[in-house]
Amino acid sequence: MLLPLLCLTFVLGAQDSIPPFSVDPLYDFDQPETLGLPWAPGVASFTVFSPGDGDNTYNHGVVLFPFRGMLYAQWQSSSVDEDGPDTRVFYSRSPDGENWTPPTPLTEVWDQGITTSGGWWTDGDTLVAYISVWPDHESGPKQGHTEFRTSIDGEHWSAPEPVTYATGQPVPGVIEQDVRALPSGRLLTAFHLQPGLIATPFYTDDPLGATGWRAGQMQNVPTDDAGMSREIEPSWFYRSDSAVVMVFRDQAGTFQKLAAVSHDRGETWTQPVLVAAPDSRAKQSAGNLPDGTAFMVNNPSGSKSRIPLVITLSADGFVFDRAYLLRSGGDDLPPQRYPGRYKRAGYSYPKSVLWGDYLYVGYGTNKEVVEVTRMPVGDLRKE
């Protein structure tokens, strides 16, 4: 059973030089296709969508979520290129995680910019689809905002509305695809705020996750890039002391993670520090199993390679001492079939969700095939 999060007195930036967690030397970098890891027990992978001639061949940013007995997958898609002018959001759903409906558009092609996948949430009765909106800009840093649509049946959707602060004003930033609830019910994620993309933790006590958002206090790591924070695209997990750890991609090219800690349910955070946790400088996923076991899913290659896809686990969230292979290189990786800007081999931008007896991970293979991998939760628990 997860311990309740404690409301502790906390000074912003205190102990900000102490890494929030550590990772044992689990990976063999002389074996780049597998890192020398065993396969996760009971692991199985399924295809949500694989393009054929005439289909959109760029597919990326896969986010999974369960609602009313179905598992939903949302992703961004374009005919050829990453962030091409025809980029929009599609979704599919499945009754079993194995068999998926044909893609359905959630947004339409927009002549003033593009839309990309923002993730999901539900209050139990209504499904929320977040949409990242990126207007065209002739100059200045890349930036966007967040809208949402709702549905009670997963088929019919409300008109888009802005995600708002507690003041009612729209949040001027793009949401991270990782809205989840603390044991108290408070929702936690991050937005990449304007001007540019400045990663900032956010929380709300609105069960629907549509309004009431407040920015957590966190001092970003200094960087020379005025248009983007050094830390971006975070995910988070609990530790056994009830602290929340947010882990970030490090744009500085260390190929390790940055991490910050909150002891007060996301209201204040330590300044992110570098953790010796290998990464591919890409989006990641983190969380906790039902028994509190913390996990991180990423490509721990220590380079730009997004091969293999790995889950790394910790009984307490302080020391990660087990790792398993979810997808590997070699025969497991299909060849890239279509050209496109910024396309690359590997398993990109994983996001995970618990559903039933399984942990599911969604990702884009070669940034063209939408896939999911699942593993039994019971087999991941430490004996």
Rank of each mutant, 00 (worst) to 15 (best):
I232T: 12
I232Y: 03
I232K: 13
E233C: 05
P234T: 06
P234G: 05
S235W: 15
S235D: 15
F237W: 09
Y238L: 15
Y238V: 13
Y238R: 14
R239F: 04
S240D: 14
S240I: 13
D241A: 10
A243N: 11
A243Y: 10
V244I: 14
V245L: 10
M246L: 14
V247E: 13
F248D: 07
R249W: 07
Q251P: 08
Q251S: 14
A252L: 13
G253D: 07
G253F: 11
T254F: 14
T254I: 09
T254A: 12
F255W: 08
F255G: 04
F255Y: 11
Q256N: 15
L258W: 02
A259W: 00
V261G: 00
V261Q: 01
V261Y: 02
S262G: 05
H263Y: 14
D264E: 00
D264V: 00
D264I: 00
R265F: 03
G266V: 00
T268W: 04
T268K: 09
W269M: 01
T270F: 00
T270K: 03
T270Q: 02
Q271H: 12
P272K: 06
P272R: 07
L274K: 14
L274G: 09
L274R: 15
L274T: 15
V275N: 09
A276N: 14
A276M: 13
A277T: 10
A277W: 15
P278H: 08
D279H: 14
S280W: 08
S280A: 15
S280N: 15
R281A: 15
A282P: 06
A282Y: 11
K283E: 15
K283C: 13
S285N: 13
N288V: 05
P290D: 04
D291E: 10
G292T: 01
G292Q: 07
V297S: 01
N299H: 08
S301K: 01
S301H: 04
